[in-house]
């Protein structure tokens, strides 16, 4: 189902969305950057401009989350209480790269094991995509087979044209939402078929470089023992900026926190494979003791291991790793080197 929304009606449309559920959208913060935040006033929303550095993943898989609380009763028995957050929420303005990322996170947490915390949130979330017209020079979504207008994973897809917003309803969840909203939307004529392809063409022409990774999908592990890793890991300082800003990183660590002698909670926080302690065994042995091994693990997981597990690249080409790297390691040049090694072997 495809609709049109008049430019003037956008504010009213957003207000209607806000009435339905918690609305999360890119908002200009006090620090002057855009971030996905629960919206207080619709006028704060900034949909255009570059993609925020922090991805909307955190509204499905937050950086820190209490899993359950426990309480020791006087009779010596313990009670557990699961803390599931399942308030309905609408996330607005998600670029296709982040839509893919959310689809991956959902897939990851429902295939190998069922993670109720993520899945419950996903069930109560409506994802509204936004066709990307402002790629940065770090973006490379076309290299991993995505496109700037791909609506995979979205319930509703929106795109901006000069005279109106295109609203494409894709799932039942999205349809239910749109039906609750009174008639702000107009029918869209046949000619609107061309809107998304033309945005796609325009945005793809703005993307810096395309490294065709699809042609070597599944064969990337042949670069495992290559020397390219060392050349990047020398520079890498093994912080976690890339993994903590990555929209598809799913690793976490859990721990117990005792508030009193009787009460406490188990929480989980994101963890990063770049940290030395990530794979440190209790025996003192560390299978990934060098930065080379850790950097290779991160890249290999994105392009090889997730393909083996789920058949998907877990990199969506959003370029956040390059944007946040303090020592300017560029993911595009890593994948370029990988492709070179896989295609032509080491020199």
């Amino acid at each position: 189902m495809r609709k049109r929304l008049k430019i003037n009606n956008l504010q009213a449309f957003l207000q209607e969305l806000q009435k339905q559920a918690t609305l999360i959208a890119p908002v200009k913060t006090d620090a002057g950057e855009r971030e996905f935040r629960p919206v207080e006033q619709v006028a704060d929303i900034v949909l255009e401009g570059s993609n925020p550095l922090r991805s909307p993943k955190e509204y499905l898989f937050p950086q820190m989350e209490t899993l359950y609380t426990f309480h020791l009763q006087k009779d010596g028995k313990a009670t557990l209480k699961e803390t599931l957050h399942n308030e309905p929420q609408i996330i607005l303005g998600i670029r296709p790269c982040d839509l893919h990322a959310i689809a991956y996170v959902k897939e990851f947490y429902s295939t190998t094991h069922q993670d109720v915390y993520v899945l419950e949130k996903w069930k109560h979330t409506i994802l509204i995509g936004w066709a990307c017209q402002n790629p940065l020079n770090t973006c490379f979504c076309t290299s991993v087979g995505n496109s700037p207008v791909d609506s995979k994973g979205a319930d509703i897809m929106m795109a901006k044209t000069d005279s109106f917003y295109l609203v494409e309803v894709l799932t039942v969840k999205g349809k239910d939402l749109i039906e609750k909203i009174p008639s702000l939307l107009e029918d869209s004529p046949e000619a609107d078929n061309e809107v998304l392809p033309s945005i796609q063409k325009q945005t793809e022409s703005m993307i810096r470089e395309k490294v065709d990774l699809l042609s070597i999908k599944g064969r990337i592990d042949s670069a495992y023992s290559s020397s390219i890793w060392k050349s990047y890991s020398d520079v890498c300082i093994a912080c976690g900026a890339c993994t903590f800003n990555c929209p598809t990183c799913t690793c976490f660590d859990s721990a117990d926190l005792l508030e009193t002698c009787q009460d406490g909670c188990r929480y989980r926080t994101w963890d990063t494979c770049q940290n030395y302690a990530f794979t440190l065994h209790a025996s003192g042995h560390n299978p990934r003791a060098t930065r080379e091994a850790r950097l290779r693990q991160r890249v290999m997981h994105k392009y090889q291991y997730s393909v083996e597990q789920l058949g998907l690249f877990s990199c969506t080409g959003c370029g956040r790793c390059t944007r946040s790297c303090p020592v300017n390691i560029d993911m595009v040049s890593i994948i370029k080197d990988i492709k070179e090694v896989v295609d032509h072997g080491e020199e």
């Binding site: 300082i237 093994a238 912080c239 976690g240 993994t243 903590f244 030395y276 440190l280």
Partner: peptide, 26 residues
């Protein structure tokens, strides 16, 4: 409150050299 504890500030710091013995790791 905006800090994401990515440890970039620690790892890039030329004065920080405790490496894996840092009190913030394990």
């Amino acid at each position: 409150s905006r800090c994401i504890r990515c440890n970039a500030c620690r790892n890039i710091c030329p004065a920080c050299f405790c490496s894996d013995q840092c009190v913030f790791d394990k």
